[in-house]
Amino acid sequence: MYIAVAALSVPESNRQAYLEAAEFMANWSMSHGALEVMEAWEAYVPDGKNTDLRKAVAAPDGEKIVTGWVIWPDKETLEKAKEAMGRGEGFEGYPAGDPPFDPSRLIFGEFEPLLTKGR
């Protein structure tokens, strides 16, 4: 198992546009071998004294924190998907226009499981 994680902020007014883009990307990821996709919209993100999610993505007032992950069977499957993405494969029909968030403030990382329980 190999996990790609993202954190970003989205203007509250762009929630529906973000959902449409996220749905497209979830379907794209699943068609390229992902096992699971999860996107979560901020319900409660407290301000921290030194750091917090809002500070991490430099979210201005009026933006909500969004986080999510894609679980891949292994790093190789994700690498093949990233290569396909770089070639633009399967992006016909992606929502037109500018992204519904500022991609320069997106935080992305890849992880190997350290501990798993449940499911």
Rank of each mutant, 00 (worst) to 15 (best):
M1W: 03
Y2Q: 06
A4E: 15
L8P: 00
L8D: 00
S9E: 11
V10P: 07
V10N: 06
P11L: 07
R15A: 01
Q16I: 11
Y18A: 06
A21T: 08
E23Q: 15
F24C: 09
M25N: 11
N27F: 06
N27G: 15
M30P: 05
S31Y: 00
S31W: 00
H32Q: 11
H32F: 10
L35V: 13
E36D: 08
E36V: 02
E36H: 08
M38I: 13
A40H: 12
P46S: 13
D47K: 12
G48W: 02
G48A: 05
G48P: 02
K49P: 00
K49L: 06
T51K: 00
D52K: 01
L53S: 09
R54D: 07
V57Y: 07
V57Q: 06
A59I: 08
P60Q: 12
K64Y: 11
I65E: 14
V70D: 05
P73V: 06
T77A: 07
K80F: 05
K82W: 06
K82G: 06
A84T: 15
A84L: 14
G88T: 13
G90Y: 13
E92Y: 08
E92A: 15
P95K: 08
A96R: 07
A96F: 03
A96I: 00
D98P: 08
P99N: 01
F101Y: 14
F101V: 00
S104L: 10
F108T: 14
F111M: 10
L114H: 02
L115M: 09
G118Y: 06
